[in-house]
């Protein structure tokens, strides 16, 4: 059984047109994929393609005017309002895109301990320090407030928070945005390690070269629709073994390849 199954996920936003009339804008249509244990699945798409919305739908953190339909299963159990409290922060965790998700009023050590407590564990100070150390952070980070951290450190603190309960599924939303190559590499290797240790990882990104280096499979989303699923290893040479037209166009558009010779 797959760790996570998503079938026919559709999402639209309800909004007012004028004062009275309501309209719906469809943003995701018929998205479906599986994630297995030991696998890093990359979800690729341009900005505005809807890839972050998939994560938000999964974790039930969409704005109030969102209408979601479709089936999401975690180890065969339907993910909904009743099962989410037992899953979120315990079995599945989200690594958010921006460091604005850290509490600006609390130091990092408290935030880590709260995350552990919410996930049903209590940890001592030494455990917190060990968790930070695992991501190459000095013990002094525990006392630091979020505004005292650089972008790369903040991301690693969020990584420590997301993984403190050893979740089976980790969803990373653009984990390398705004990081330099060294920091990006560190974060991505840690995601890879989480998968190699038997978890499942969803890596949401707009960077194909980055995804190919660390992911096993690539799911491509364009304009809210699934436009192809490929094995990462098939993105090689002229891209002849790629099955989807979009996958080939994406591969050809890379500066290191033909830089857009094929038409999407």
């Amino acid at each position: 059984m797959s760790l996570l199954q998503i079938e026919n996920l559709c999402l639209s936003f309800r909004h007012y047109r004028g004062l009275v009339h309501e309209a719906q804008t469809s943003v995701l249509r018929g998205i479906g994929f599986d994630v297995d244990r030991g696998e890093v699945l990359a979800v690729i798409g341009g900005s505005g393609a809807g890839k972050s919305l998939v994560a938000q739908a999964l974790f039930g953190v969409l704005p109030g005017n969102a209408l979601v339909s479709g089936i999401m299963r975690f180890e065969g159990v339907l993910i909904d309002k009743t099962t989410r409290p037992r899953l979120l922060g315990r079995r599945m965790a989200l690594l958010p895109q921006s460091s604005s998700h850290l509490d600006p009023m609390a130091n990092c050590s408290s935030q880590l301990r709260w995350a552990a407590r919410r996930g049903g564990r209590t940890i001592r100070k030494a455990d917190a320090q060990a968790a930070f150390l695992r991501f190459g952070l000095p013990a002094s980070v525990g006392k630091a407030f979020p505004h005292e951290l650089s972008g790369g450190m903040a991301r690693r603190v969020m990584m420590a928070i997301a993984t403190i309960t050893e979740p089976d599924l980790l969803v990373a939303d653009e984990p390398t945005a705004g990081l330099d190559a060294g920091n990006a590499e560190t974060i991505l290797s840690q995601l890879r390690a989480a998968a190699d240790a038997g978890g499942g990882v969803i890596l949401i990104t707009h960077s194909l070269p980055e995804a190919l280096k660390f992911a096993d499979r690539v799911v491509m989303i364009e304009n809210g629709q699934l436009v192809g699923t490929e094995a990462a290893a098939d993105f090689t040479g002229s891209g002849a073994s790629l099955r989807s037209h979009y996958g080939q166009a994406l591969w050809q558009a890379l500066p290191q390849n033909a830089f857009g010779a094929a038409n999407a």
Partner: peptide
């Protein structure tokens, strides 16, 4: 922040 296809088109 753009996907490779959009990037290539803009630079063209």
């Amino acid at each position: 922040a753009l996907d490779p296809i959009t990037q290539a088109r803009l630079w063209r």
